[in-house]
Simulated scan of single mutants.
Amino acid sequence: MALSAIALITASATAVAQEQAYRTLDAPLMTDGDGVEVREFFSYACPHCADFEPQIRAWTERMGDQITVVHTPVTFGRNSWEVLARAYFAADALGIIQDTHTLMFQAIHQQGRQFSDAEAVAEFYASVADVSEQDVVDAMNSFSVTSQINQANRLVGEYGVPGTPAVAVAGKYLIDVRAAGGQAGMLEVAESLVSRESE
Rank of each mutant, 00 (worst) to 15 (best):
residue 43 S to I: 03
residue 43 S to K: 02
residue 44 Y to M: 02
residue 46 C to P: 05
residue 47 P to W: 08
residue 50 A to Y: 12
residue 50 A to D: 09
residue 50 A to I: 02
residue 50 A to K: 11
residue 52 F to D: 03
residue 53 E to W: 00
residue 54 P to F: 04
residue 55 Q to R: 13
residue 56 I to M: 09
residue 58 A to H: 00
residue 59 W to V: 10
residue 59 W to Y: 04
residue 60 T to I: 01
residue 61 E to F: 02
residue 61 E to D: 07
residue 62 R to T: 13
residue 63 M to G: 09
residue 63 M to N: 15
residue 64 G to Y: 13
residue 65 D to C: 05
residue 65 D to R: 05
residue 66 Q to D: 13
residue 68 T to D: 10
residue 68 T to C: 03
residue 69 V to M: 01
residue 73 P to H: 05
residue 73 P to E: 01
residue 74 V to S: 00
residue 74 V to F: 02
residue 75 T to W: 00
residue 78 R to E: 15
residue 78 R to M: 11
residue 79 N to D: 15
residue 79 N to W: 14
residue 79 N to L: 12
residue 81 W to V: 05
residue 81 W to P: 05
residue 81 W to R: 04
residue 82 E to Q: 14
residue 83 V to A: 11
residue 83 V to E: 13
residue 84 L to R: 02
residue 85 A to C: 00
residue 86 R to Y: 10
residue 88 Y to W: 14
residue 90 A to R: 07
residue 91 A to P: 01
residue 92 D to V: 09
residue 92 D to I: 07
residue 93 A to K: 06
residue 93 A to T: 06
residue 93 A to H: 03
residue 93 A to N: 01
residue 94 L to Q: 00
residue 95 G to A: 12
residue 98 Q to S: 11
residue 101 H to C: 05
residue 102 T to R: 12
residue 102 T to Y: 07
residue 102 T to D: 11
residue 103 L to W: 15
residue 105 F to I: 03
residue 106 Q to E: 14
residue 106 Q to C: 07
